[in-house]
């Protein structure tokens, strides 16, 4: 009985439709689970927070809540660019805490079935940590990198955040 349930569950994962928010970062397209995204906002005034890792842009006031902001380009070691009209902050729920991520642009919400997700190719170079790449989605016209942002910060980084 237990096993049967598990079986059904895993089956579901493969056939289930997943909704992703897709966003752009330095010409590549990425996707994150829509359920983790709380809201998408334009760039407000960011207050710099001293003595934090370079990719921590600062904090913003989100309707009375103070939310830390991470610059995705800096985090992934990409070339920095000026913020423009398209620049957005995706406010995500990270283990119960809100955190904002600066991205170049947010394009759309797409639906894919779980079976379309392929494991990421072993040799992804560059600054993106392997752990936070949950897979790639290879559709006819586009290639989407599926991110798991909760895994974005390694344990060390989390410690550094809190133990500095």
């Amino acid at each position: 009985m237990q096993n049967a349930l598990v079986q059904i569950k895993t089956d579901n994962i493969h056939d289930e439709l997943i909704q992703l928010v897709s966003f752009n970062l330095d010409q590549e397209e990425y996707g994150v689970d829509v359920l983790k995204v709380r809201e998408i906002i334009r760039m407000p005034i960011v207050t710099r927070v001293p003595n934090t890792p370079h990719y921590v842009e600062g904090v913003i006031n989100l309707r009375g809540k103070v939310v830390p902001i991470i610059c995705m380009r800096k985090k992934f070691g990409l070339v920095e660019s000026e913020n423009d009209k398209q620049t957005r902050i995706m406010v995500m729920d990270m283990d119960g805490e809100l955190m904002g991520f600066i991205v170049d642009a947010v394009s759309e919400v797409i639906r894919i079935s779980g079976s379309e997700i392929q494991p990421s190719p072993a040799m992804v170079a560059g600054g993106i940590d392997q752990e936070c790449i949950a897979g790639v989605i290879n559709q006819a016209e586009r290639l989407l990198v599926l991110l798991n942002l909760e895994k974005m910060f390694s344990r060390d980084e989390k410690n550094m955040f809190t133990g500095m």
């Binding site: 407000p44 005034i45 207050t47 927070v49 001293p50 003595n51 934090t52 921590v56 600062g58 904090v59 913003i60 006031n61 009375g64 809540k65 103070v66 939310v67 830390p68 990270m94 805490e97 809100l98 955190m99 910060f153 989390k158 955040f161 809190t162 133990g163 500095m164």
Partner: peptide
């Protein structure tokens, strides 16, 4: 006083943050 959240809780020299009249955050 507003907390900076778990991720930024232990920045040396910073106890927390607050929101100013113009909506900006001050540490």
């Amino acid at each position: 006083i507003k907390s900076l959240g778990n991720y930024l809780a232990n920045i040396p020299g910073i106890a927390g943050s607050t929101i100013l009249g113009d909506g900006r955050v001050a540490l």
